[in-house]
Amino acid sequence: MTTAASAAPTAPLATRGLVAGYEPDLPIVKGIDFTLAPGEFVTVLGPNGAGKSTFVKAIAGLVPLHGGSLHLSGRDITGLPRHELVRQGLAFVPQTENIFATLTIRENLQVAAAVLPKAERQQRIDAMLAAYPDLASRPGALAGGLSGGQRQMLATARALLVEPKVLILDEPSAGLSPKAVSEMFARLVEINRSGVPILLVEQNVRAALAIASRAVILVDGLLRHDAPAADLAADPDIGRLFLGAHADGAAPAGEGTR
C-alpha cells in the first residue's frame, strides 16, 4: 500500500476519511483515504454506482463534502470554493459539458488563463495551441462545433494551461470513437511523463490498466483494493471480485456509459 498516512503532508493529492454526497444524510463516498504520489498515474475503477465520479467531483469541489479532509501538496484545501481549487493547482476535466460551446476555442482557453498572472497568459495559450494542432487550426471557431474527441482535447488543454500540480479526469473516453480514445490515452501518458500526476476515473478497465501505474477499486463508496495496475491486469479474479459480473466486458473499448 502506498497510502501511508505519513505521506499525506507532501503528496500532490491526498484525502483522509473523505465523505461526500449531494445530500448530507445520503453519503455516496463513505470515508476514503487516498494518496496520489508525485508523478503517479492512478486509475479509479469500480462497478457502476460505486461512487467513482462522486469521489473525483468531491475533490474538485462539485459535490459537497460532509467529512474528512483534502490536501494538495501538503496544503489543507478542504472546503475551498471550486474556483479557488484551480488557483491552488488542482485541474479537473468533467465527463460531460466540459467546454463552453458558445465561446470560441481561443476564448475557452482565455477564460481559464485568467487565473494566471497577466504576463504569462498569452504565452501559455500559445503553448497549448501549439501542443494541440487540431485546435490551433481554427482558434476563432465556436467550440460547440467540435467533435467529441476535439472537445476532450480542448478540455484537457484548458486544464493543463494553468500548469496544474494534479490533473483529474472523469471518464474522458465516454462517448468517443475507439481511435479518439487511443489518441486521448496516448496524450495522458505523455502528460504524465512530463511530470503531472494523474487521477483517472474509467469504465474502460483494460485500457485504463494498460496506461496507469496503480489502480484503486471503489465498491459502494469505499476504497476496497489498491494495487499496481500491472498486477490487477494479470489477475483474472479481480474483475469477478470487484468489478461486477460483467467486469471484462463492462465497457467495450470506446463505448460510453451514457
Binding site: L62, P81, F100, A101, E107, A114
Partner: peptide
C-alpha cells in the same frame, strides 16, 4: 458569458 452558459464548469476553470 462562461457563467451564463455553464456556472458549474465556470467554477471548475477558476
Amino acid at each position: 458569458r462562461a457563467v451564463s452558459e455553464n456556472p458549474a464548469l465556470a467554477g471548475v476553470v477558476g
